[in-house]
């Protein structure tokens, strides 16, 4: 008979509902902070929730000729991101239920799977504009996926394990490893990737329906409930990537496990996210948007640094 460890069970529930429930809030805080920097009053920090609630109430329109993938892809994506939120240390620094489903590389592959499902759905919408977005997305993603996997390899090399929780513990207890070359450059590469994956300036300006948009074009045919789920997926993805960046690369310290200390992880993650929002805000408000064809140069730079320093570290070690 399987005995349930109630502390782990509570930690699992807390992590899952924190990720799924509060990920739109971080997007709201970011937009509000950006408005303040731009001397605007800006929307409430709860605006993403209002948007989601509005979209859930709206009618869902299905384009003529679209397939079954188009309808079910947002749900599949939500399922994939839900699983990822349980297998990487995005709130609780010790393994919880479902953590054993996959390792770090498995997490990276799940991110790729979610992207693939989204692409397949956009192609299944029979829209030329979505196909254009997919074409753009794929011409950039071959480098971003390569960087993602290389960065995770780099982390595995530093710690000698492919378990993200062990990595977090190792980096938190060995501060000198955080200034090793491979860690610095994999952090840099992952940060560049984070900006790209979450559609931030200088890569993408998601707020406007402009020619340079990538992610918005892929969502173009979605409406109503399906669009709401897709938007929610984007918020969760942003939270997951940002939390990996914070907990594994930038600031692996400060998280607690065990009752009742795990409750302190919630304000700690808020504090860490405010730091990340501050950094992204500085970049967003100081840099101009790159021209579309320059995005490839940006990703090639991230890829080059991640792979070069990964191999060099192996030679030096």
């Amino acid at each position: 008979m399987v005995r349930i460890d109630y502390v782990t069970f509570t930690e699992t529930l807390l992590q899952y509902f924190f990720v799924v429930g509060l990920s739109p809030l971080f997007a709201g805080i970011f937009h509000r902070a950006k408005s303040m920097v731009e001397s605007r009053k800006g929307p409430s920090i709860f605006q993403p929730y209002y948007d989601l609630a509005k979209l859930f109430k709206k009618e869902t329109l299905k384009p003529a000729g679209s397939g079954i993938i188009f309808i079910y892809a947002p749900y599949v994506g939500f399922g994939i991101y839900s699983l990822i939120s349980l297998i990487i240390p995005v709130l609780i620094p010790v393994p919880i239920y479902f953590t054993a489903s996959a390792d770090f590389l498995g997490g990276a592959i799940l991110f790729s799977l979610a992207a693939f499902v989204k692409v397949a759905a956009a192609m299944g919408s029979n829209s030329n504009f979505s196909a254009l977005g997919v074409s753009r997305m794929l011409s950039f993603n071959f480098l971003s996926e390569g960087t993602l996997i290389t960065v995770f390899f780099a982390v595995s090399l530093i710690t000698g394990t492919n378990n993200p929780y062990t990595t977090n513990l190792f980096l938190a207890s060995n501060p000198l490893q955080n200034i090793s070359i491979v860690h610095i450059f994999s952090t840099l590469a992952f940060f560049m990737l984070f900006l790209y994956e979450t559609g931030r300036i200088p890569l993408e300006s998601a707020g406007l329906q402009e020619l340079g948009m990538i992610d918005e074009a892929v969502n173009y045919e979605y409406s109503g409930k399906l669009l709401a789920i897709n938007k929610w997926n984007s918020y969760i993805k942003q939270y997951l990537l940002g939390s990996v960046l914070l907990n594994v690369f930038l600031v692996p310290w400060g998280l607690n496990a065990g009752s009742p200390w795990f409750l302190l992880d919630v304000p700690m993650m808020f504090a860490k996210w405010l730091l990340l929002i501050g950094i992204v805000l500085i970049i967003e408000t100081t840099l101009a948007k790159l021209r579309l064809f320059r995005v490839l140069d940006y990703l090639a730079t991230a890829f080059t640094f991640s792979i070069l320093f990964l191999i060099f570290t192996e030679v030096i070690a």
């Binding site: 480098l143 320059r294 490839l296 140069d297 990703l299 090639a300 730079t301 890829f303 080059t304 792979i307 070069l308 191999i311 030679v315």
Partner: peptide, 21 residues
């Protein structure tokens, strides 16, 4: 073309360094 040059350079440099080593 930055992307093209970086990737080719990466392949060239890594191959050459590995051969030397």
């Amino acid at each position: 073309s930055v992307a093209y040059l970086f990737i080719i350079s990466l392949v060239f440099v890594l191959t050459a360094v590995l051969i030397v080593y």
